[in-house]
């Protein structure tokens, strides 16, 4: 039986080690989550191997043919054994619990100088605001490497949930309250932010791009965006800040979202429909349900850009998207 147990333990360990179960960690918090994960995995492999070894051995050793009418030995119990298998599992799970509590507390520490980022979610888009950088708005989440970020999160309508799989941390955004979460990115690159709480028809596509930059690159990005937010190209800043690029492909903005229709040929689409391009784009922003491009669904684009953006901002956005100089 011990042999069976060892074979099962080796097999399960191979499954646990050879398959890349978790994404490559990209945050300090994920590193700690991985540590708890492996701690629990070692215990689980031992328990699983023990149970399966006893089960398989019993089936092989004590199987009896249907015509055998004898009974087994009348063993009713064994107090020592029963105490053991009550106490030992209790100790093991409490060990997991204590470690988890430490890690949870560590993963909730913002440190002395966090970067504050506000997250706004609504059906079905993400927006980010950097209060430490003069209220810079962005539709993609850009983070500096190795700096702890404290997210303060609000939802405008229903419950959404914030998750960057490689960074582990997850938190719901709940209408009516502000929730928060701590992430310290440890790897530069492109990541994906996904909504993990069913929030309606566009839930599956409620994603945003996450870019982790070195601290210098991040400072440069902030500077560029701040200057870009000035007069000459206001439309581009609004396009980025309102999160348009998360869903729409638009070459001038460098965006490649595929959730909504592409905007590169929107002028010719409007003209083909016999509409003034500027009017057509304005209507599509303010009343997205009015004309639905074939192959796309109503109800996915937020219907309230007419309220969240000022008339001047909408003018600039329309001008930017239609390519008109302003």
């Amino acid at each position: 039986m011990a042999g069976i147990g060892i074979v099962i333990a080796i097999l399960v360990t191979l499954v646990a080690v050879l398959i890349p179960w978790l994404p490559t960690s990209a945050s300090e918090q994920m590193d700690r989550i991985e540590f708890v994960y492996w701690f629990a995995t070692v215990i689980c492999i031992a328990v699983f191997a023990l149970v399966m070894a006893v089960l398989l051995y019993s089936v092989m050793a004590f199987r009896s043919p249907p015509e055998d009418e004898s009974d087994g030995p009348p063993i009713h119990g064994n107090t020592g054994l029963e105490i053991a298998w009550t106490v030992v599992p209790a100790i093991l799970v409490i060990a997991i619990g204590v470690l988890s509590a430490f890690v949870l507390s560590k993963n909730g520490e913002a440190g002395p100088n966090p970067l504050n980022v506000k997250v706004f979610a609504q059906q079905f888009a993400w927006r980010f605001v950097y209060p430490d950088d003069g209220g810079l708005k962005s539709g993609e989440l850009v983070l500096p490497l190795d700096r702890t970020v404290k997210f303060e999160m609000e939802s405008a309508d229903v419950i959404h949930s914030f998750w960057i799989p490689d960074m582990g941390q997850k938190q719901d955004l709940v209408p009516g309250i502000t929730t928060s979460i701590i992430v310290t990115p440890t790897r530069t690159g492109m990541f994906s932010l996904v909504c993990t709480e069913l929030c309606g028809v566009g839930h599956a596509t409620m994603r945003a791009t996450v870019r982790v930059l070195s601290q210098d690159d991040f400072a440069a990005w902030v500077k560029e965006r701040k200057s870009g937010g000035g007069k000459p190209n206001a439309g581009a800043a609004i396009f980025a800040g309102a999160g348009c690029g998360g869903c729409h492909t638009f070459t001038p903005a460098g965006s490649n979202g595929e959730i909504g229709p592409g905007l590169d040929d929107i002028v010719s689409v409007a003209q083909k429909a016999g509409r003034d391009p500027a009017e057509f784009v304005r209507e599509a922003i303010v009343e997205p349900g009015k004309v639905i491009t074939p192959g796309y669904q109503d109800g996915v684009m937020p219907p309230n850009y007419g309220e969240t953006l000022s008339p001047e901002e909408i003018d600039a956005l329309v001008a930017y998207v239609t390519g008109a100089k302003k």
Binding site: L22, M30, R32, I33, V36, Y37, A40, I43, C44, V47, F48, V51, M52, V93, I96, G97, L99, S100, A101, V103, L104, N107, S161, W163, P165, G168, Q169, K170, Q171, T196, E197
Partner: peptide
Amino acid sequence: VIGGLSGIYLASVPITIHASD
């Protein structure tokens, strides 16, 4: 037993923060 052991992972708050939903 497999379902119970994956339940151990989900009981641990840090792991479930990653794995929930």
